[in-house]
Nucleic acid binder design. Sequence first.
DNA 1: AGGAAGCATGGTACCGATACCAAAGCAAGC
DNA 2: GCTTGCTTTGGTATCGGTACCATGCTTCCT
Lengths: 372, 372
Amino acid sequence: MAGSRPPARRAPTMRDVSRLAGVSPMTVSRTLADPGLVSEEARRRVLAAVDQLGYVPDRGAGSLSSRRTGFVALIVPSLINPNFADTAAGLTAAMRPRGYQPLIGVTGYSVSEEEVVLRAMLSRRPDAIVVSGMHRSPAARDLLARAGVPVVEIWDRPEAPIDRAVGFSNYAVGRLAAETLVAKTRVARTDIARSNVARTGAARRTEGAVRIAGLGPARTGETRDFRGEERLRGFRDGLAAAGLADAPILHHGSVAGAFTQGAEAMAALLARGGAEAVFLVSDIPAFGALMECRRRGIRVPEDVQILGFGDFEIGRQCVPRLSTIAVDAAEIGRRTGALVLDLLDGVAADPAVIDLGFSLLLRETTVAESGG
Amino acid sequence: MAGSRPPARRAPTMRDVSRLAGVSPMTVSRTLADPGLVSEEARRRVLAAVDQLGYVPDRGAGSLSSRRTGFVALIVPSLINPNFADTAAGLTAAMRPRGYQPLIGVTGYSVSEEEVVLRAMLSRRPDAIVVSGMHRSPAARDLLARAGVPVVEIWDRPEAPIDRAVGFSNYAVGRLAAETLVAKTRVARTDIARSNVARTGAARRTEGAVRIAGLGPARTGETRDFRGEERLRGFRDGLAAAGLADAPILHHGSVAGAFTQGAEAMAALLARGGAEAVFLVSDIPAFGALMECRRRGIRVPEDVQILGFGDFEIGRQCVPRLSTIAVDAAEIGRRTGALVLDLLDGVAADPAVIDLGFSLLLRETTVAESGG
DNA sequence: AGGAAGCATGGTACCGATACCAAAGCAAGC
DNA sequence: GCTTGCTTTGGTATCGGTACCATGCTTCCT
């Protein structure tokens, strides 16, 4: 009958293989771990026995003895966020050929949950730990510092890393966003003045205070998007440096359902009088904001310019294509994987902090450079 | 200096805790596993020692002895696909409160890779295995059947499950898609005839053969999206049942970069004369197709109706909102988690195959029911 | 020829927890 | 008072591998 399992007869062990092959268990172990150590003849017999029995080694048992588990803990806020999914995929791809298995822990952006997840990971004795961001509870930081294995903080650029870091400065992303929108607003006004369009909205925009807004996560509550907050902080500072200290910065709620949050934040901004240009801390809410504009017949970029962050696939595909500040999420994963492998091999030549940087991708939700 | 780790002094063991607390290791073990078994006094002393030493039990060692690892293997084609990410999140949420750790394996839709990943998982001796879909290599199926632990196939509705299954019939989804588009095409023609619009394209559509198309994955190659293929098969059969056996079914390539694939497939379809209505096997390429239409000034749903699958967040947010056939990906994960817990507790009351069904969500990329 | 060095193999002692059984301590029942 | 049974605790073996050391044999060198 479907649904029944064979009575769980014990899986064959190395001892079973060794008996069948007529060698000692040690020879079986060596054959599987480093075939070069055993004779051609022994290897042949062992592999035949492995095949015949369908033997799959128990790495848990091996780990206990060798004190290497082959696990790499990866703790991220969410797997739904394509950025972290990409990073997880990149890390996995880099490490699986060497037999490492990622242990993925998801915190749901919760500070307290990170600690719980971290404890669960540590009980599996990972050979290395990869965590996102640089902000965490003191207890969590302490657990990491005492873990006795390589620790890599990713997706940020800590001043004082616990051990290593692979990422970029979220604060600098925000600064660049501010500078970009300040410049683009100037371009837009020039274009409008030059083309002498008599539309009310456009006409109004060529005079008066520059209106640039930022939309990002709230800085309170149990769930926190610290990296988004950093970008928003950099953005605010960047605007202040350009003399726009009173620019509206609107905060939306929890990071879950980010599409909707972007739409709602944009609606709130419009209710407050709108803006000429808006920075959103992620492409996901930026897409939501873009769609909100479309629903209301607000033209992008003519009426409102939109700048996102992350270079998500969705921003490349939508119409108009989203201008964004790009980071290579998969590369963060791959680079972290390579670094971890080096550290585990004792070949740690890299600097403590690897800054992968970011790049500005001006597409269709910001205005083009003023021609001539 | 940043980047240096403390010399990896051995982590404290249960023995260290027992010495500090003045009890035997067994009492420590019991305190942690089932506190009700030890006296108030002993429990207090043990917990204090645990706290003082920062002891984290080694579950690998425990597993070896108890023959329960607390791992649940989850093998999916991709984590980038939000559907599987949602399912993974749902499964994780359901199982973590009971101390189970998901071991996520990603196959990249590759048949041969699934076998490799499965072997890697088996070497960790998971207490249960969850795999997506029902199509796999004979060797992989054999490994699963002999694993000696509960096996749950998800995201499909196998006739002969290896053990258990939680999902829905992808074939039936395709049939429903066909029926839906046949009906919707009739509605659209009626509307157009009634409103007497003189537009060339519209006029042409009220006569001649119904043109309904399907866009989905190729059925060859090393990477296969079997579930998408099933939906497309059901769609083709559904059209044939409606007398449209010669409807164009276009296949796109690898499942990676599905946004672009949808756009390209739509472009190819338009090059072949277009269609009145199109079914795409996932919302991701459906969104790509929708944007391709927008780039070309083709109106949706007036000129082309689009129906997707999956009810992804993106389809809820985009303009126009995507009509789709919805499945609850997170619920598949949660339900699977609950089933696995029951099986591990020996409370297996559920039927071998749990069909969660699906539902039709008619939003804005298909025409509304004809008024009156 | 004698000894050093290297290769292939095996034996033994763990790794750090839990299962299982034994036993001590104590209260209740006759 | 002694047995019975429950609660609480501890000792010992073991889970399935690998580290480490020892051994037998061959090869090569002086």
